[in-house]
């Protein structure tokens, strides 16, 4: 077995070229569980957690998007300007494990593992994020999230590529993330819902986690609710009774889920959990709040 600890992106690509089958390691919160339990015995590991080009995040020149680099930890997603720009991402990050896991786990790791329960993934889906992949020599390609995640723990990353990060379009408006698990802390999602309102485009986007092989969008419910909301610069509102509207919205969102029975929960419960989370997400988004710019 070999372990490479590159200190630059060039070194990382060189290490990957030397060991094309190497497992790419970021925070270790997925890989090391498999190693500890004897489910995986990697022959080569390229550890990416000290590659400076994979740290932090950057706003685009026109301010319309943010490149979140793959080494950004959940703890870093929870704070500061990034959390203000993407509150749903911050909320999702805060539901991941305990502080120890959030200090280690990263966006790139969440994308690379591509678990159906990956907590940031429904947020990326609701934001229409793209995934930036890099290769040696500066080559890059950018894939929409649903072309990057192609199945349960399967991605479109080629063996010679490294996930550089995800590009998140900035949306002005309320965002919510709700997750159901067997308890509050340290839990893997049984179902999760991300809701992103775009006040400027007058749209609502809903991403679902843990209720399909990959994150799902509830597009029919999104269109349905957008037609029934008033969008103004300060937020969204509804003419009718918000509870009734949210109830029906929850039912429609649940209809978009494709849950299965497994060791963590049943499909019936997951569908119910999605409807409750979607209802609450909408009610929270409807409650008066200060919307940042």
């Amino acid at each position: 077995m070999t372990v490479a600890v590159p200190r630059s992106l060039d070194e990382a690509f060189a290490a990957l070229a030397a060991e094309p089958d190497a497992h790419l390691l970021m925070g270790g919160t997925d890989l090391m569980v498999e190693v500890n339990y004897g489910h995986r015995r990697p022959t080569a590991v390229v550890s990416l957690d000290r590659v400076p080009e994979l740290r932090g995040w950057e706003r685009s020149a026109d301010g319309r998007s943010v490149l979140v680099r793959s080494g950004l930890t959940y703890t870093e997603m929870e704070i500061g300007e990034l959390a203000e720009s993407f509150p749903a991402l911050a909320q999702a990050a805060r539901t991941v494990g305990g502080p120890q896991i959030r200090n280690a786990g990263t966006l790139g790791g969440n994308l690379g593992t591509a678990s159906p329960a990956g907590d940031t993934l429904p947020v990326l889906a609701a934001l229409d994020a793209t995934v930036v992949l890099g290769a040696a020599g500066g080559a890059q390609r950018e894939l929409p999230w649903d072309e990057f995640i192609v199945g349960v723990k399967r991605t479109a990353r080629e063996p010679h590529e490294i996930i550089l990060g995800a590009r998140l379009p900035v949306r002005r408006g309320p965002q919510e993330f709700l997750k159901v698990g067997t308890r509050n802390a340290m839990v893997i999602a049984v179902a999760s819902v991300a809701l992103v309102v775009d006040l400027d485009a007058a749209t609502v986007a809903v991403g679902l986690g843990s209720v399909g092989p990959a994150p799902l969008r509830a597009r029919e419910a999104e269109r349905w609710i957008a037609e029934r909301l008033a969008f103004d610069p300060l937020g969204i509102s509804s003419d009718g009774d918000p509870e009734t509207l949210a109830e029906e919205f929850g039912r429609m969102v649940a209809g978009a889920s494709r849950p299965i029975d497994d060791h963590r929960s049943s499909a019936v419960y997951r569908r119910h959990a999605v409807s409750v989370c979607a209802r609450r997400a909408l009610l929270r988004a409807l409650s008066p709040q200060v919307v940042g710019t």
Binding site: V35, N36, P99, Q100, N103
Partner: peptide, 8 residues
């Protein structure tokens, strides 16, 4: 602060 079990 991290879990030592998850650090290679």
């Amino acid at each position: 602060l991290v879990c030592a079990c998850l650090v290679l």
